[in-house]
Design a protein around this nucleic acid. Structure first.
Lengths: 139, 139, 139, 139
DNA sequence: GTGGTCTAGACCACA
DNA sequence: GTGGTCTAGACCACA
C-alpha cells in the first residue's frame, strides 16, 4: 500500500503544512507503520511537482518532532516512538489557532451551531481523505 | 470597564492578528458595545508597547470589515451595523482559519472527539460572557 | 499582454487606491484573467517608482477582498472565485465612494442629468472593453 | 427662510464636506441668494455642535472657490459670481472619484443597471434633502 | 526568488 | 488632539 499524498497549490495552507498533515493522518489511520521507509526527498519532490527544498523542510520538521527518523546514507523512516503531549500541553499549543478560528467565525456571523457544523464537516472530510480521487479537491 | 488587551511577542501569531482576535472576542462577549470609542492608535500603541503603525493597521483592517468605524480627527468607534455576508462568503472567509486550526489539532494528536470538545468549550465560554452583566467581567 | 498601470503622485487619491482602481478596471475589461500571475511586489514597486510596502499593502487589500490570491513564496495571482456579497453588504461597501463621487460632482456644478451621463459613459467604456478580443487593447 | 444645515457625525463623509455640499445645494435650489449673509463661524459651530475650526475651514474653502466672500468686520456673504468651470475642466476634476466609485461598484458585483440605480437614488435623496427631518438620515 | 510583518519616522487631513 | 498614507529598511516564512 503506497502512501497517498497530494497537494493543492492554490490553497492558503502552505505546501509543507499539507504534506505534514497528510503524513500525520496516514500515521493515525495506520497506513504508515513505525520503521517504514519514506520516499526520498527527490522522489517525493518529483512526484508532487514541488521544490525539493519544500520536501526537505517537511522531513526536517517531522524529524525534529520525532515523527520521522533519518538514517544517514539509508533514508528517512517512520520513527518507532511518537511524541506524546500531555493534554495540558496540547491545549496550550492549540490555543492560538482555536482563538483565531472561533473569533473569526463569530465575527463573520456564524452561529455556534454552524461553527460546530463546519468543524464536523472538516473532520469528516479529513477522515474520508483516502477515499477522495486525487486532484479533484474542492479547493 | 476598560478593554483588556494583551499581546505576546515572538509568537507565530502576528501582533495585529492577536489584537483583532481579542477585539472580536470582546465584542462576542459583550464587553464592547456598538458606538463605544476605542483607545486611540497612539494610546493603544504605548499601552501594548508596539509600533503605532501596527495598531493603525489593525484598526484599518477592522474598519474595512465593518467592525469598527473611524471618524477622522475624532477617533475609532465600534460600528453600529455589522457586515452581512452570504453563507458562501462566510465559508470562504473562515476556510483558512478552519484549516489551520483543524490541521494543527490533528497534528498535535487531538482525536476528532477532542477537537469537537475544545471548540464546544470555547463557544461555551463566549456564550457565558454575554450573560454577564456589564462591568464585572473576569479579566 | 502586459498589465498597464500608472500612478499620479501628489494626487488626493492615495497611490494604493489608484492601483486598486486600475486593477479592478483591468479585471472588469477582461485584461486580467482568473489565475493570471500579477507582477511581484518588488517588480511593480520598481516599475511605478513607489515603496514596495505600498504595493504589498495594495495586494494585501485585494487578497482580503478575494480579488487576488497569494501563494507564499510563489507570487500573487488573480483569484478564481470572486467574493459574493448580499445586496445590503454591497450597498454598505459602495456608500462611501458613491457619496464622495456625487457630492464632488454636485459641488463642481454638474447637473443631475450630467452626472447620470458621465456614469453611463464610464459604464459603456468598461462594457466596450470586455468585447475586445484578448491581446490588442488600446493602451 | 433660514438656511437649513445638518450634519451626521458617524458618516465617512467629513463634516466640512457635508456642510460645503449642503451650502452648494442650497445655492443650486435658490435658497441662498447672492449677497446674502451667512451665519458667523461661532454661531454655526454652536448650532451644529461642531468645532469652530471646522466651520472656519469650511468657509475658507468656499471663499477660496469663490462661492462665499468675506467682508472684514461685517461677516461672510454669498458671492455675487460663482466660478464656472468648462465641461472639460469639470470632467477632469470628477475623473478620480468617478473611477473609484465605478471600479469599486463593478468589483463588488453591481450590474450596470444597479449602478445607475444607486446613483439615481442618491441624486433623488439630495434633491429631496430639505424635506428630510433633521437627525434621522439613514446613515 | 516570493510575500508577510513590524519598526521608525515623516507629513497630511480633519476636528 | 485624531487617524491615513507613505517611505525606508529590517527580518521572517516559504518555494
Amino acid at each position: 500500500m503506497a502512501l497517498e499524498l497530494s497537494i493543492v497549490t492554490g490553497s492558503a495552507v502552505p505546501i509543507y503544512r499539507q504534506i505534514i498533515d497528510q503524513i500525520c493522518q496516514a500515521l493515525a489511520r495506520g497506513e504508515l507503520a513505525a520503521g517504514e521507509q519514506m520516499p526520498s526527498v527527490r522522489a517525493l519532490a518529483e512526484r508532487l511537482l514541488v521544490n525539493p527544498n519544500t520536501i526537505a523542510r517537511t522531513y526536517t520538521d517531522l524529524v525534529r518532532d520525532g515523527v520521522l527518523e533519518t538514517q544517514r546514507g539509508r533514508g528517512v523512516f517512520v520513527a518507532q516512538r511518537r511524541p506524546v503531549y500531555t493534554r495540558t500541553e496540547r491545549l496550550r499549543r492549540i490555543e492560538g489557532a482555536l482563538n483565531t478560528f472561533v473569533s473569526q467565525a463569530v465575527h463573520l456571523g456564524f452561529a455556534p451551531e454552524e461553527i460546530r457544523q463546519v468543524v464536523q464537516e472538516k473532520l469528516d472530510s479529513l477522515a474520508a481523505g483516502t477515499l477522495v480521487e486525487g486532484g479533484h479537491h474542492h479547493e
